[in-house]
Design a protein around this nucleic acid. Sequence first.
DNA 1: TGCGTTTTAATTGTGATCAATTGAATTGAT
DNA 2: ATCAATTCAATTGATCACAATTAAAACGCA
Lengths: 155, 155
Amino acid sequence: MPDPLSPPTAAPPKLDDQLCFALYSAGLALTKVYRPVLEALDLTYPQYLAMLCLWEADDVTVNALGARLRLDSGTLTPLLKRLEGRGLIVRRRDPGDERRVRVALTETGRALGDRASDIPLRIGEASGLSREEARAERRRLVALRDRLEAWLDRN
Amino acid sequence: MPDPLSPPTAAPPKLDDQLCFALYSAGLALTKVYRPVLEALDLTYPQYLAMLCLWEADDVTVNALGARLRLDSGTLTPLLKRLEGRGLIVRRRDPGDERRVRVALTETGRALGDRASDIPLRIGEASGLSREEARAERRRLVALRDRLEAWLDRN
DNA sequence: TGCGTTTTAATTGTGATCAATTGAATTGAT
DNA sequence: ATCAATTCAATTGATCACAATTAAAACGCA
């Protein structure tokens, strides 16, 4: 039992009190759930996210992709090279601005999207959330992310 | 405008609809917020989590630490060696069971905890959440994590 | 006791993440 | 037109995360 008159030394924080650890460990668990689900497509989770982006909007620069995924070229360049090595995308310099690299789907890469349509459903089942609960949670997390990113911009 | 009579080919999922991407990107943003805050302690975010664990319960095995943090020895062993190299912890074989490695704080490591007490407050400010909102969100994320881990156990 | 099984941490290899730097291309201001 | 500043992707080096494997220690059961 803690002494109510114990000296006022600063106490270290507790792991399980932290929203941050909950977010971190939920994220790790999620990636582990994706692994067997994505095995059929032979994609890692970040690779899957990049493909999601490209299935929506093709022929974009590395910068634009990174802005959507919140990843920089140090992460994306090797990841995209692996996707290119598998023939899912092509990377080519923009003829009008040689600094830019445009990323475009190949036919193989586009075709892979047809096989991805049931993935959200399977992940949704693992999460045990209803459609509505998942929507609400997604909104809250996006709001949290946006506030964290705004803080980063200010600091 | 989409053609309501378009063929029923399977459509790939949309990035911004995904709870998963919201969780993933919020987690990345959180780590970036921690970076400057933890700079004063010269700890990375996973190292900080390990120290949080140890400030609560000292002299634990690598297994026990990994169970709380959801990390395996492949992640923890090098991380703990770095903390040991900085003199914050010591790692020694359990005399009663030489398979086990017990991790204990040094005086330096314990003293670092006193300087960590204001970190949750500073992160809380960056998150823009009230104490109550953060508590509620933490509970929901822990519940989600537990369901994902239960699914992993079943599969 | 002896020996197969289990437990535990460490190691190896792949991939992801980011900070910092590099080098090339472009832009802009004069 | 020139040249400094900016933009963009790539690279390097450090850390993290995990699957698969290894090796040693401990356990269990005949």
